[in-house]
């Protein structure tokens, strides 16, 4: 643990991410105000002691909505990374193990997916399936599959050449067991690093889609959605845009730094040296 916290990137990233996670968890049980409760009297109020981050056009408390918005962001991050990880790792392992035709097919499909501009295609998918948080997560998650598939394949291919795999084979261990017990555990740290970075990217992607009205639907609070609504009141109530914007920047920066910090400490090269 000390090893991790001696790394500045990790410490800062960890702290920033922790704030986001704590805010989200707290919002599940307590927010200063009901995040969805409208109050016409209090509309478009600036930051004050009662509403530290002001209120929006319906008089909803911005702080409460930013906190609740963290929940959407985290759910989107988790689900998209889970989609990408599970399918990507399976495909990557298959690609590395079977090689030849299987590898060729999987990798060419990956190339194809990489060739599409991700956000544009996500817009396409959500406009076909209809705008909703679930469809946004699907659209982002699909683009994560090739990311994890390529990473898994690259690391797995070098692992299959390693001597300890031959040693395991010489011990009569089956190919399936070797894959799960010897190959996969050795890929976990690069996957963790990549997963953290993709988590940050997913928060940004969800914000973009929601900003365009294709992601999380009202009244559920979402940072991108809040930015969208703030647009109309930019000059009258700039806090409506500033705070959700800051929240996005904070979370994305935090998880990126966390990923960098993990990379510094869990660097695959260092793992190999052990």
């Amino acid at each position: 643990m000390k090893r991790f916290f001696s790394n500045l990137n990790f410490t800062v990233g960890f702290t920033m991410s922790l704030v986001v996670v704590l805010a989200a968890v707290l919002s599940l049980v307590w927010t200063p105000f009901d995040a969805d409760k409208m109050n016409a009297k209090n509309r478009l109020q600036g930051p004050s002691w009662t509403h530290p981050l002001g209120t929006d056009q319906y008089g909803r408390d911005t702080l409460s909505r930013v906190m609740t918005g963290a929940v959407s962001s985290i759910i989107v991050g988790l689900v998209t990374v889970a989609i990408g990880l599970s399918l990507g790792v399976l495909l990557g392992l298959a690609s590395a193990y079977f090689g030849k035709f299987v590898d060729e097919v999987i990798m060419r499909i990956s190339d194809l997916l990489f060739g599409f501009p991700a956000v544009l295609t996500a817009i396409l998918i959500t406009s076909i399936l209809g705008p909703s948080m679930i469809n946004a997560m699907l659209a982002i998650g699909i683009f994560y599959i090739p990311v994890f598939a390529r990473l898994t394949r690259a690391v797995a291919m070098t692992l299959w050449e390693r001597e300890f795999i031959t040693a395991a084979r010489a011990g009569g261990v089956g190919e399936w067991t070797i894959t799960w017990r010897h190959v996969l555990p050795n890929i976990l740290s690069p996957l963790l690093i990549q997963g953290t970075v993709q988590f940050a990217v997913a928060i940004l992607a969800e914000a973009s889609l929601s900003y365009l009205g294709l992601g999380t639907q009202p009244p559920t609070a979402s940072w991108g959605r809040m930015l969208n609504e703030a647009q109309t009141f930019m000059s009258r109530a700039p806090w409506m845009a500033i705070f959700p914007g800051l929240a996005i920047a904070w979370a994305v920066l935090g998880f990126n730094l966390l990923g960098d910090g993990l990379r510094d400490t869990l660097d695959p090269k260092m793992v190999r040296m052990r």
């Binding site: 001597e163 300890f164 031959t166 040693a167 793992v271 190999r272 052990r274």
Partner: peptide, 14 residues
């Protein structure tokens, strides 16, 4: 079978 390199013949993460 026993291999030459005890450094690389054991799985580093098990």
């Amino acid at each position: 079978m026993i291999f030459q390199e005890p450094m690389t013949s054991l799985n580093p993460v098990l």
